[in-house]
Write a protein that binds this DNA or RNA. Structure first.
Length: 570
RNA sequence: CGGGACGUGGCGCAGCUUGGCAGCGCGCAGCGUUCGGGACGCUGAGGUCGCGGGUUCAAAUCCCGCCGUCCCGACCA
C-alpha cells in the first residue's frame, strides 16, 4: 500500500474526552472514529489488526477441533423467553419490533441460538462438539467508556461446547483454557486467568482472562506465588484468628455517631474490626440485612451470586426507618427478626462486638454474634484488600487492575435443559447435553494491545498484530533516483510476502517519522538521497527503539528476516 | 438511574459574565521557497454556533424545554 493512497487520518491533537491511552491513540493514529456513545467505526488500520487477531483466534479454535459457524445478530423473542433470559437480562439487551409487532432482540450472546441448533444432535456418538463464530454482539451498556474497552456493539469470538457428561465438559473447558492461553500468548498479551463470578450466564464455574492495565475496570486478587488468582467479585482470603473476650450486651448512647469511623473515634466505641456493619438492601423487592465486619466492604456481585437476586439496590433512608426504626448510622441486627439476615463469615463466632441499636444515637456493645443475632445465612460477601493472606499459601495478596479479554464458563445444563437438548446415551436413555460457553472480545483485545504497547510517540504493535509490518519512509519522493530505490525495496518486500506501507507522501521527513511512530509500524526503513548516494538506508525498530544503518543490498534480506522472527513470538 | 461538566468549520479551542460583523491554532486547496525529526510565505475554501421555543430592534451570548457526549458513582458475560 502507498501511504499517499491509504486512508490513515492521523491527528495532531488528542481527541477530547479520550481518557484511556488506547482510546486516545487509536483515534489520533487514524484507527477508529466514534459514531455515538459506545459505538465506533473501525478504519482500515484497525480492520487489519482485528483481522490478524481473528486469524490467530481461528487457528487456535480449529486446533481444538472447533467448527466455525455464523449466526444471526437478530433474534426472535421466543428464543430468549425459552431460556428465561428475555425477562432476566433487562435493559442490557437491545430490543425492537418488526413490522408485524413481533418482539426481537439484538443478540448479546448466543447460547440460545446455538442450543436451538444443538437440538439436532441425537446421539452421544455425535458428541463432543465445539461450535464457534466470530460475530457482532450488542449490549446496551449503562455507561460505555474508554473507547473500545467498553462498547455497545462489538465483535466476539464465542464458542459453545456440547458434551455427554460433566467430565466431557471439563475436557472442553480445559481445552478452551489452553487455547485461550495460546491465543493471548501469541497476541502478545499477558492474560492472567482468574476465578470469576458467572453472573447472568449461570453455570457452575468460570475463568476470566485479565490483561493488566490501569485503564481496565476489573479488580483482581492475585497471589505473587502464582497459586491463587480471582476476580474481586469472587475472591477469598484467609481470615486471621481472632480471640474475643466475652461481653455483656449493653445499649449505650452515641450521639452524633453516623459512620464506622465515627464509632471508632468515639469514646467508649470500638475499632472498625470490632464493629458489625449493617447494610440494608432490596433483593428483587425483598428487604434484607447484610452484616459485615466494620472494616470490610461489601461486593454486591457476591450478594447477587449467593442469593440469585437479579435486581439489587440499597434501601433508602425512609424505607429503612419504616422497617428498622432508625436512620442509617444506628442500624443493627440485634433483636431483629422478620427479615432475611445474611452475614459474612468474618463475623462467625465473634463476641464483644459493637453495632447499631436501631435507635438513633444508640449502639450496642458486648454483642455476641451467635447469641444476639438471628443470622439466616452465612456467605462470603466481602471485598479483599491488598496484603490479606492468600487462602492457598498465606502470602500477602496483591490487588491489580485489568481488563477482561476472555471469559470461559461451565454452563452445565442451564440452556440445554430449557431447550430440551438431549441425546441418546450409550444405555439408550435420553441424556441432557452438558454445555460450556467461551468468549473473547476482539476489539477489546485490540484496545488491550494498544494499552499494553504504546509510548509517548504512539502505538508500538507487536509484529504479529501490526497493521503493516514495515514502512518505507521515502525522503524526497520527488527525487527520481531515491523513489526508484524505494520502489524496488517495496516490490521485493511485497514479493517476499511482507506487509509493507510505502510512505511516498510529499511530506517533510519529520512528519513521516512522527506518523509512522504514531501508527506504530514495527519496522521502518528510511530511504533518502543521502543514503542512496552511499548505498545505505536507516533501519528503525519501533519496538526496541534501535536504529542502524544497513547497506541497500542487504536491507530487504534483513527486513524479511526480522519480520519473520517477529511473527511468531516465543 | 444519581452527581458533575461540556456541545461554536475535519480536529483542538476562544468568544457567553456585560446581547451588536462568528474568531484563533492545527488540518485542507492553489502557488512559491524548503526538505534526514511535526518548515515558511502569499492566496483561498470551509460554520444550520446541538435542536426547538421564548425574551429583544438585535441572541453563539439571556430564559425554558429537549437531544447528544464525556467524567465520577450505581450497573455490567
Amino acid at each position: 500500500m502507498r501511504w499517499s493512497q491509504a486512508h490513515i487520518p492521523t491527528l495532531r491533537d488528542d481527541p477530547a474526552d479520550a481518557e484511556a491511552a488506547s482510546h486516545r491513540l487509536l483515534t489520533r493514529a487514524g484507527y477508529m472514529r466514534q459514531l455515538m456513545a459506545g459505538v465506533y467505526s473501525l478504519l482500515p488500520l484497525a480492520v487489519k489488526v482485528r483481522a490478524k487477531i481473528a486469524t490467530i483466534v481461528r487457528e487456535e479454535m480449529d486446533a481444538i477441533g472447533a467448527q466455525e459457524f455464523l449466526l444471526p445478530a437478530i433474534h426472535p423473542a421466543e428464543l430468549w423467553q425459552k431460556s428465561g433470559r428475555w425477562e432476566l437480562v433487562g435493559e442490557e439487551m437491545f430490543r425492537l419490533q418488526d413490522r408485524r409487532q413481533s418482539d426481537l432482540a439484538l443478540g448479546m450472546t448466543h447460547e440460545e441460538v446455538f442450543t436451538s441448533l444443538a437440538l439436532e444432535l441425537a446421539s452421544y456418538r455425535q458428541l463432543p462438539q465445539i461450535w464457534y463464530q466470530i460475530q457482532t454482539k450488542f449490549r446496551d451498556e449503562p455507561r460505555p467508556k474508554s473507547g473500545l474497552l467498553r462498547t455497545r456493539e462489538f465483535t466476539m469470538k464465542d464458542s459453545y461446547s456440547f458434551d455427554i457428561d460433566a467430565a466431557g465438559l471439563d475436557r472442553a473447558f480445559d481445552a478452551h483454557h489452553e487455547a485461550y492461553a495460546n491465543i493471548f500468548r501469541r497476541l502478545g498479551l499477558e492474560a492472567i486467568p482468574v476465578a470469576a463470578s458467572s453472573g447472568l450466564m449461570g453455570g457452575t464455574g468460570s475463568v476470566e482472562f485479565i490483561v493488566r492495565t490501569d485503564a481496565g475496570e476489573d479488580l483482581i486478587v492475585v497471589c505473587p506465588t502464582g497459586d491463587y488468582a480471582a476476580n474481586m467479585e469472587a475472591a477469598a482470603a484467609r481470615l486471621d484468628e481472632v480471640l474475643d473476650e466475652p461481653g455483656e450486651l449493653e445499649k449505650f448512647p452515641t450521639p452524633g455517631v453516623k459512620t464506622i469511623d465515627d464509632l471508632a473515634n468515639f469514646e467508649g466505641g470500638a475499632p472498625a474490626d470490632r464493629q458489625v456493619k449493617s447494610l440494608t438492601y432490596f433483593l428483587d423487592a425483598e428487604f434484607v440485612l447484610v452484616l459485615l465486619r466494620g472494616d470490610h466492604a461489601l461486593v454486591e456481585q457476591k450478594l447477587a451470586d449467593h442469593t440469585g437476586a437479579l435486581e439489587i439496590r440499597q434501601a433508602n433512608p425512609d424505607e429503612i426507618k419504616e422497617r428498622l426504626g432508625a436512620e442509617p448510622g444506628s442500624l443493627g441486627a440485634v433483636e431483629v427478626s422478620g427479615f432475611r439476615i445474611l452475614a459474612d463469615p468474618a463475623l462467625k463466632g465473634r463476641t464483644n462486638m459493637t453495632t447499631g441499636a436501631n435507635e438513633d444515637g444508640f449502639h450496642f456493645r458486648g454483642v455476641d454474634v451467635d447469641r444476639d443475632l438471628n443470622i439466616n445465612e452465612w456467605s462470603d460477601l466481602r471485598a479483599i484488600e491488598a496484603g490479606e493472606a492468600c487462602v492457598e499459601c498465606g502470602n500477602p495478596l496483591e490487588v491489580l487492575r485489568g481488563i477482561e479479554v476472555g471469559h470461559i464458563f461451565k454452563l452445565g445444563e442451564r440452556y440445554s435443559a430449557a431447550f430440551g437438548a438431549e441425546v441418546l446415551a450409550e444405555e439408550g436413555t435420553a441424556s441432557t447435553i452438558v454445555m460450556g460457553s467461551y468468549g473473547i472480545g476482539l476489539e477489546r483485545s485490540v484496545a488491550a494491545l494498544a494499552e499494553t504497547y504504546h509510548d509517548d510517540a504512539g502505538l508500538k504493535w507487536p509484529m504479529q498484530v501490526a497493521p503493516f509490518e514495515v514502512v518505507i519512509s521515502v525522503i524526497r519522493p520527488d527525487d527520481a533516483e531515491t523513489m526508484g530505490v524505494a520502489d524496488e525495496i517495496y516490490r521485493q518486500l511485497l514479493a517476499a510476502g511482507v506487509e509493507v506501507l510505502l510512505d511516498d507522501r510529499d511530506e517533510r521527513p519529520g512528519v513521516k517519522f512522527a506518523d509512522s511512530e504514531l501508527v506504530g509500524i514495527p519496522l521502518r526503513i528510511t530511504v533518502g538521497p543521502r543514503g542512496v548516494a552511499d548505498k545505505s538506508a536507516e533501519l528503525f525498530d519501533r519496538r526496541s527503539g534501535e536504529k542502524q544503518d544497513v547497506s541497500l543490498d542487504k536491507a530487504v534480506g534483513l527486513l524479511v528476516e526480522l519480520v519473520e522472527q517477529g511473527r511468531e513470538p516465543v
